[in-house]
Amino acid sequence: MTENTVSNAVAVRDNGPGAMVEAYSADLATVMPSHVRPETFVRLAVGVLRRDRKLTEAAQNNPAALMGALMDAAQLGLTPGTEQFYLVPRKVKGRLEIQGIRGYQGEIELIYRAGAVSSVIVEVVRGSDGFRYAPGRDERPEHDIDWDAEDRGPLRLVYAYAVMKDGATSKVVVLNRAQVMQAKAMSQGSDTPYSPWQKHEEAMWMKTAAHRLTKWVPTSAEYMREQLRAHAEVAAEVRPAVVAPTPQPVTTVDHDDDEGPIDAEFVDDEPAAGWPPAAQPGTGARA
C-alpha cells in the first residue's frame, strides 16, 4: 500500500473504519485473485468491523494497520473476520491496533486452491481418543473417537495430511502439545485476551498442523501453470515431424576466395517467470 493510501485512510478516519474500507475498495481489488469478488470482500470486512467495538477502536487508532491486514487477506484471497483470516485487536504501546492472522481454514483453502489435492484432513486428538501412526509403516493415521463421551479430555495431539488427486497420501504431519506450544510462543500477541489462541484454541492447533502441511503440498496456482506447461511440452514432443523436401543437386562454381559454410547455433530462450507470483492460498471435508 502506498504512502498516499495510508495518508488518505487517516483523512477518512473520522467517518469510521467501515467508510475507510469502502473508500479504498479499489486498492484492495487490485491485489485480489480473480476468483474473489471485491464487493463481497469489502462488505464482509465492513460488517466484522462494525460488529466488534474493540476492532472499531483498534481500526480508528491505526488505520494503516487495518488496511495492511486487509491487504494481506486480499492478496491471499481469504475472507477477513473468519477462521480463514482473523482480524484481532492487540495492544501496541498501550493502544489497540488491528492484527491479521491466517486461520486453519485459510491454510486449507490455499492448499485446495492449488488443485493438486482431493481432500485435506486436519484433526485434533484428545486425551481419551485412540491414535496410532507409525511413519514408514502406516500410510495414514488411525484415529478412534468415542463420540458418546461427554468429555474427550484435553488436547493432546494434532495431525494433518492431504490425499492427492492420484490417490496418494502426502506426508503426515503430527504435532504434540509441546510442539504446538512452541508455535504459540512464536506467535505475536498469543498471550493477550484478544488472540485466537485464547478464544479458539482448538482451531489454532489445527492451523499449526495445517501450516506445517503446506511445506509438503502445493499451495499456489503456480502448480497448475507448471502442469499446463508440462502438458504443452509433451504435446510438442509427440507432434509428427515435418518431413523436409529432398534437396535437388545444384551446380556450384569454385572460387579461391569462397568461404566455407557458417555454422549457426539456434538458442531457445527460456521466458522469464511472470509477476506477481500466485497466492499461496479441513477436517475430512473441505473447510
Rank of each mutant, 00 (worst) to 15 (best):
A23H: 08
A210T: 09
A11N: 08
P261F: 04
V117I: 05
G100A: 05
T246E: 01
M224T: 14
R53V: 08
S25W: 07
T56P: 00
G18Y: 11
G130L: 08
V242R: 14
A65R: 07
A58M: 01
R137Q: 02
A9M: 14
A116C: 02
A73N: 06
V6L: 06
R90W: 11
L213H: 03
T192W: 02
F41K: 05
E270T: 14
E123R: 15
V158G: 10
M67E: 07
Q84K: 09
V122K: 07
G103V: 11
A9I: 04
P281M: 01
A183G: 01
T169Y: 06
Y133N: 07
M32Q: 12
V158R: 02
W216N: 11
H211Q: 14
D269W: 09
E265P: 00
L228C: 05
S25K: 11
M186C: 00
F85A: 05
H211L: 05
D144Y: 07
R95V: 11
T2G: 10
I101M: 07
G153W: 10
D191F: 06
P193S: 13
Y159C: 02
H35P: 02
A149C: 07
R229Q: 15
A209M: 03
G274T: 12
D148H: 06
E202L: 01
D146W: 10
V172M: 03
W147A: 14
A26C: 02
D14T: 15
L87Y: 09
P218D: 01
L155E: 06
V42T: 14
V158H: 07
R53M: 10
E265C: 04
A59K: 05
V243N: 08
E259R: 07
R137A: 12
E259T: 12
A134K: 11
R225T: 14
P135A: 15
R90D: 10
H255P: 00
L66K: 00
Q280H: 00
M67D: 00
D151C: 07
V31M: 11
A45T: 12
E270M: 08
V242Y: 01
R140L: 15
P249K: 07
A160F: 13
K54T: 12
N4C: 04
E3W: 09
G130K: 11
A59N: 04
E83M: 09
A160K: 08
A19T: 14
D52L: 00
M181P: 01
Q84V: 08
R53D: 15
R156H: 03
E265K: 14
D151R: 13
S187G: 00
E222P: 00
H143C: 13
L110N: 10
A114T: 02
T214M: 15
K215V: 03
L155Q: 08
S190T: 03
T5A: 14
K171R: 15
